[in-house]
Design a protein around this nucleic acid. Structure first.
Lengths: 220, 220
DNA sequence: ATCCTGCTGCCATTATCCTGGCAGCAGGGA
DNA sequence: TCCCTGCTGCCAGGATAATGGCAGCAGGAT
C-alpha cells in the first residue's frame, strides 16, 4: 500500500468523476489488479467512501460528513505516529504532515474530556447516506435502537442533522409516527436507501421544522 | 522507528518528568542508543518538543498547545495516508487509527455536483474549529456577513450545528445579542479561537436550545 | 447461461525499512 | 584536560511489508 498510489487513486477518482474498474486503475498506476484491490480495501478501511460493484467498477462517493467529534488521546497518538511514517517521497506531503503535527496537541488532554458515543462500525457510511437522502429527497430505511434497546425498522424522510458537543441527531419525518422525530445518530444500527423519494416535500418539511423549532431563534 | 517505541518514549517522558539520557531510554526500551537517537529525531521532526543537551539528556518540554485549526485537504491526505502506514501491530493503535480516519472528511465533491452550501474557501477550517469550540466549550470569534451584506464581528458560544439540504447553520449564544442566534455557515467570513471559554455553561445552553426548539419533537 | 467484475486466501519473491555497530565531531561540566 | 553525552554518516544483516500470480467464489448485466 504505497502512500503514493493511494493518493493517486483518490486523485483519479476525483478527476474522473465516474466509475473506475480495478483493471483501469491497475493500468494507470502500473500495478496489478490484486494490489489495487488491496489498496481500495485499505482506503475503505480508513473511511474513504469508495463503493465497489461487481460488473461496474468503483465509485468514490462525494461528500461524506461525520458527526464532528474530537480525538481521543489514542487517536491523536495514532495520527502523530502515522505522520512519522510518511516517507519524504510521498508526493510532497511531508510539509503538510509537519503542519498537521503542529496543529495537534500531544500534551495530555485535560481529564474530564468527554467522549462522544460513536456510530457502530457497521454504519460508517451513514452520514454520507444521510446527506444524500436529504439532498435528493429520498426515503431512508433505518434499523433504529430505541431507548429501551429494542430494534425497530422505520422509513424516514430526513430533514436536517443536528450536531452538538454531546450527541448528534437526525431530524426526520417518521412514516411510522407520521410526525417529525429526533433520531439519535449513534442508535441507527443500519441504514439504506431503498426506492422511493419525497420529491417536492423537502421544502415543506423544512418549513415545518422551522416553524416548530427555530422560530424562536432569530437569524443573525 | 517502530510506532510502539515512539509512544513509549513519550510515555516515559510523561511519567518521568525529568531528563532522560539516550542510554537510559535505550535500556528501558530494549533498543540501542543509535536507534533512540533516530527515534528522538523523528519525534522532533514531527513537532514533539523534545530538547536534547549534551551531557544532560533529553527533556520533554511541557505544554505545547498550539492554536489548533482545521486541516487543509493536503493535510488531511497526509493524515489519511499516514494512518494507512500504521502496522497492525502498533500496540493496538489500528483501532484508533480507523476511528480517526472515520472522523475525517476527505472527499471533495468531484466535478461540480456540489449541492450543499459550503463555507467559503477562506474558511475551510471552520467546521473543525467549530467542533473544537463546542467540544471544549470555548468562545469563538467570527466575522459575520449579515443579511444586509455588512460585516460584523461577534463573539459566540457555539451550541450546535444544523445541516439541511439547503443550508447549514450554527446555533450559538451571541454575546452581542445576549441570546441564542442562528448563524448561516456560509456567511461566516472568518473564524478564530481567541482566549476565553464558557466551561460549565455548555449543558445549560444545550438545555435552553432543547427547551426552545426540540421540545416539540419527540425523541424516537 | 455467460461474461465482466469485485473480492478473498494463499504463497513465493521482491522491495523496503529498521536496527545495531562503528567511527567521528561537538559541547558542557569537573 | 578528560569524561559524559548528544548527534551524524555509513553500512551490512535482519525483520517486515508490499507485490503479483493463481485459484476460486459471488453478484450484477446481458
Amino acid at each position: 500500500m504505497k502512500p503514493n498510489r493511494m493518493l493517486q487513486i483518490i486523485a483519479l477518482f476525483r478527476s474522473e468523476g465516474g466509475a473506475l474498474t480495478a483493471e483501469a486503475l491497475a493500468a494507470r498506476l502500473g500495478a496489478s489488479r490484486r494490489t489495487i484491490y488491496r489498496d481500495i480495501s485499505a482506503l475503505q478501511a480508513m473511511g474513504v467512501p469508495i463503493d465497489g460493484t461487481a460488473g461496474q467498477g468503483y465509485v468514490l462517493r462525494p461528500g461524506f460528513d461525520l458527526p464532528p467529534i474530537g480525538f481521543s488521546p489514542a487517536e491523536i497518538e495514532a495520527i502523530i505516529v502515522g505522520l512519522a511514517l510518511l516517507p519524504a517521497s510521498a508526493g510532497g506531503l511531508s510539509a503538510a504532515a509537519r503542519s498537521v503535527a503542529a496543529k495537534i496537541q500531544i500534551a495530555q488532554p485535560p481529564k474530564g474530556r468527554r467522549t462522544l458515543p460513536r456510530a457502530s462500525s457497521s454504519t460508517a457510511a451513514e452520514p454520507a447516506l444521510l446527506r444524500r437522502a436529504m439532498r435528493e429527497e429520498r426515503r431512508l430505511a433505518i434499523a433504529y435502537r430505541g431507548q429501551d434497546g429494542a430494534i425497530s425498522h422505520r422509513a424516514i424522510l430526513p430533514v436536517a442533522s443536528v450536531t452538538r458537543a454531546d450527541a448528534a441527531f437526525v431530524v426526520a419525518w417518521c412514516e411510522l409516527a407520521e410526525d417529525l422525530r429526533l433520531f439519535r445518530m449513534e442508535a441507527i444500527e443500519d441504514c439504506i436507501l431503498p426506492g422511493g423519494g419525497f420529491a417536492g416535500r423537502g421544502a415543506a418539511l423544512r418549513a415545518e421544522l422551522d416553524a416548530r423549532t427555530f422560530a424562536s431563534i432569530a437569524l443573525a
